[in-house]
Design a protein around this nucleic acid. Structure first.
Lengths: 336, 336
DNA sequence: CTGAAAGCGCTAACAG
DNA sequence: CTGTTAGCGCTTTCAG
């Protein structure tokens, strides 16, 4: 520590200490090829000695790239925050980005005001890319993002924009098939379903998987729509018990809703899995906290998150970004 | 939309369109006093017309403030992400910050590498403030933050640094007293406890509240330390059953651990609350998913988060920031 | 009250 | 391979 400067060291200080020009320092810092080994070494030493850290604002001003990407949460009904899944996404994104020395900024676009802020943020070029979470089919945000021209990917398909916004997602349809088939194999014949909102992939595709297996046997009264909350799950289960009282199994599109359903079933005097088998979706921490523990479809959220970030980085690097769908598997516990 | 420029409009464009100088535009944008009404109006119109949005990088370069604060998660054992509480924090922070047109960047300092990144980030002046989450007493991060000179606050006290890092927190001690006293009032006489890690406030203070009520009746074998995870709660409960088999109640320092304890008790053939009463802490979503539903101490996480951000903003504005402790309350359900 | 001017720290194009 | 140079868009004195 030769130099205990009051000011933060700039590239000029590094240049001076290392005895080369600013330009050369910059080249070293950015890994450009045309630098002699001697120069590189001198610069590295000077960087260490001065404790130099690049000033992103200055770099950004010059390059018009910001070194940050924005994670946009559209969550009309706050569901995400009740959902532990989301945390997993964020941690994976942060880590992956950190490797590239990029940072993650978080924005919530729950209402018109929030969407507007996101739109302005993007238009102002404050982020190099956008990572969309739980975006609904008709969310006006999508248009704003597209208009901003900022590279964007989604975690989970944005229904209707699958071909324009690359995404990584679980095989919702396949997972639902897995669970449904399992219930059938257990000898269940009167299987109901509680879905998620139909304008989300988890809502629409899990229902498709369900009906795909059961075919025309599925009638309207056997399917109720929930909203991914626990109380929504309770409400839906009550409704289902009303419209389809003879049911001997339910496939529920999320663990949180399944926890609600479980509670209602037990309150109604139906034993689980004795009278009614219950299968969930997610395999979140909740699945082992309920009693009985949930049989549920595990989706590899950590990998989904990583893939989503990988796609975005590919996009930033000007590469092709092809959506990926990751396989799910059934975790059999006690509820079915 | 008179002007469909290919480039993003700059302050120069606004100056030109409004017929004043750059300096005046800047003054208007920053709410400086010395501007004539006529000029202000012209500028505002021009801003709307051009769709101008300030370039933060340029502003930042000049003012050396960034308009963003960083939320640092230190979570040695990944606990946070298993914990739905955290999401609540983040949403409150994001919203509060958005009001000030500031953004939230997220960093994870789970290991040495992560801490290093945070330290560099702060030293480089990339954030105007730091918001520390679940920071342990002896975390080297704390020193790095202090050395960086960046204003910082914590959500939950940083043990040992209470006087230097302002914080907002729940009344952990009081909440624990509430739960313990309730168990006593229910006629329980042999009460055990599962704590959190003792280098976190939730670990140390909840234990203090517990022993505060029970006094010298508490012996070593009645207290087991957990790590805030569900499996940790299971392990701890097993241990407690071993060391203190005659117990008729447990106070568990978090709902997640309580869920684990519940499971172990039931597996051991002890009915809840019949044989053993269980009280948790948090009142998270989990508390209503377990069976029986948890009697637990509710902490006002949303308000804690808001207060934390308020403190940080006060600090940024150069005001005094005095730590606040918010009251908790007992939510009685079925487990005790 | 307002215009002009001087950089903030960095990168990239251009000459050597 | 390296030094020099010209700004990126903004705020902020300093004069008027």
């Amino acid at each position: 520590m030769t130099n205990v400067a009051a000011k933060r060291p700039t590239i000029n200080d590094v240049a001076e200490v290392s005895g080369v020009s600013r330009g050369t320092v910059s080249r070293v810092l950015n890994g450009r090829a045309n630098v002699s080994l001697a120069a590189e070494l001198a610069v590295r030493r000077a960087v260490a000695e001065t404790g130099y850290v690049v000033n992103r604002a200055a770099r950004s001003l010059k390059t018009s790239r910001t070194g940050s990407i924005v994670m946009v949460l559209s969550e009309p009904q706050e569901r995400l925050f009740e959902d532990p899944n989301f945390s997993v996404l964020m941690r994976a994104a942060t880590n992956r980005l950190a490797e590239r020395d990029m940072s993650l900024v978080l924005m919530i676009a729950g209402d018109a005001g929030g969407r507007d802020r996101v739109a302005r943020y993007l238009r102002a070029g404050h982020a190099d890319g956008a990572l969309l979470i739980s975006t609904h089919a008709d969310d006006p945000l999508v248009e704003a993002v597209e208009r901003s021209q900022v590279p964007a990917v989604a975690c989970g398909a944005v229904l209707g924009r699958e071909s324009v916004i690359p995404y990584a997602a679980a095989d919702d349809r396949g997972g639902a098939r897995l669970a449904t088939r399992y219930l059938v194999d257990q000898g269940r014949r009167k299987i109901g379903m509680i879905t998620g909102p139909l304008d989300t992939p988890g809502g629409a595709l899990r229902l498709e998987g369900f009906t795909g297996v059961l075919g025309r046997k599925v009638t309207k009264r056997m399917v109720v729509h929930g909203d991914y909350t626990q109380s929504g799950g309770e409400r839906a289960m009550r409704e289902l018990l009303e419209s389809f009282p003879e049911l001997d199994a339910v496939f529920v599109a999320s663990d949180l809703m399944a926890a609600g359903a479980l509670r209602v079933l037990q309150a109604a005097g139906r034993s689980v899995p004795g009278d009614v088998a219950v299968a969930g979706f997610d395999d979140s921490a909740l699945a082992t906290a309920t009693s009985p523990m949930l049989t549920t479809v595990r989706q590899p959220l950590d990998r989904i998150a990583e893939e989503t970030v990988r796609l975005l980085i590919a996009l930033l690097d000007g590469e092709e970004a092809t959506s990926v769908v990751l396989p799910t598997e059934l975790t059999v516990r006690d509820s079915a």
